[in-house]
């Protein structure tokens, strides 16, 4: 078994103008996915990220406030899951619940270094 990182990229929920009912539904989708993975024991952890932050870049280490920059490609969170191979990991990623609102899920194998 290998570890894979699922990286969730999508627009900020606050920009979507969801109704309270709509938000609860979105949340429920995440919990359904989470509990499904819990049952299978394939999720090793993960976190949601605040939509605010700083981005440092360049040799001058210039820090940009991510909220002020117009960044559509914002990482909203990640999970680390175990799967047989890339195909299996992609299968898991199919359950990511935000595709319908323009979300993207990136599947990346975690590199293992030999000591």
């Amino acid at each position: 078994m290998k570890d894979f990182m699922l990286i969730f990229i999508g627009e900020d929920y606050s920009e979507l103008g969801l109704s309270p009912e709509g938000m609860q539904e979105r949340m429920s989708n995440w919990w359904v996915w989470q509990s499904k993975m819990d049952k299978q024991g394939i999720c090793k952890g993960g976190n949601a990220l605040h939509p605010t932050g700083m981005r440092l870049s360049g040799s001058d280490k210039v820090a940009t406030d991510m909220a002020s920059a117009e960044l559509k490609e914002l990482v909203g969170g990640y999970y680390i899951v175990t799967a047989e191979n890339m195909e299996g990991a992609c299968k898991i990623a199919e359950d990511y619940p935000d595709y319908d609102i323009g979300g993207t899920c990136e599947v990346r194998e975690v590199m293992v270094f030999d000591r």
Binding site: S14, G46, A48
Partner: peptide, 16 residues
């Protein structure tokens, strides 16, 4: 109130 819900959505993603 909208703000509170957004906060909840982020906080609750990992568990209720």
């Amino acid at each position: 109130i909208q703000d509170t819900f957004i906060t909840a959505m982020i906080h609750w993603k990992n568990g209720i």
